[in-house]
C-alpha cells in the first residue's frame, strides 16, 4: 500500500513532465502519458519520496509558494545588488573565505533545498557538505565572520526556517 502511494506521487511527477514536454493534450498524449507514467511510477516508487503523505499536504505547498515568492523576489534581488555593488566598486571590496556553518535539518530534501538556495544566491556557494558533523562548507565572497554560528545566522538561517516548514 505504501509503495502504491509512493508510486502515485512519481506517477503525477512523470505525467506532468510528459505532458509539459510534449506540449499538447490530445487523446493520444493522455493515453500514452498515463501508460508511461504508470510504468515509471512502478519502477521508481522506492527512490523518489519516502513519506508520500507530505506531498499531498496543502500547507506544505502554501509554505513552498510563500518561500518561492520571497526567495525569487527579495533574497535573490538583495544578493544580486550586493554582488553588483562589489563588482562595480573601484576598490573591489571582497573578502573571500570558505566558512564552516552547521545546519539543523534532517531530511535529504530540506538539506538539498537549503544548499541550493545558498548556492543560487550570488556571493555564496556551498562547496561541500559533511553529513556526519552536519556542516555546510560555504564559499563566501565577503566573509563577515568566520564563526560557524554567526555565519549560519548571516547566510541561511531564514532559508532553513522555510525549508523546515516545507519538507520536515
Amino acid at each position: 500500500m505504501r509503495r502504491v502511494s509512493r508510486g502515485f506521487i512519481v506517477f503525477i511527477l512523470a505525467f506532468t513532465v510528459y505532458v509539459v514536454y510534449t506540449g499538447s493534450i490530445s487523446g493520444y498524449d493522455i493515453v500514452t502519458g498515463v501508460i508511461v507514467s504508470a510504468v515509471i511510477g512502478a519502477l521508481f516508487s522506492n527512490i523518489v519520496v519516502e513519506k508520500p503523505i507530505k506531498v499531498v499536504d496543502p500547507r506544505r505547498w502554501l509554505h513552498l509558494l510563500v518561500y518561492a515568492l520571497l526567495y525569487f523576489t527579495y533574497y535573490e534581488a538583495k544578493a544580486h545588488i550586493d554582488v553588483i555593488r562589489r563588482i562595480l566598486h573601484p576598490k573591489l571590496p571582497v573578502n573571500p573565505a570558505i566558512v564552516e556553518a552547521p545546519y539543523r535539518i534532517e531530511s535529504d530534501f530540506a538539506i538539498t533545498a537549503v544548499a541550493n538556495s545558498i548556492t543560487n544566491t550570488p556571493g555564496t556557494v556551498v562547496v561541500d557538505i559533511d553529513p556526519s558533523k552536519k556542516n555546510f562548507y560555504i564559499h563566501w565572497i565577503s566573509a563577515k565572520t568566520l564563526d560557524p554560528l554567526e555565519a549560519r545566522r548571516e547566510i541561511f538561517e531564514t532559508f532553513e526556517k522555510h525549508a523546515k516548514r516545507i519538507f520536515e
Partner: peptide
Amino acid sequence: ITAPMIVAVGAS
C-alpha cells in the same frame, strides 16, 4: 527527483 523526469522526456 530528476530520474523519473529523464525517463518521461525520453518516452515522450
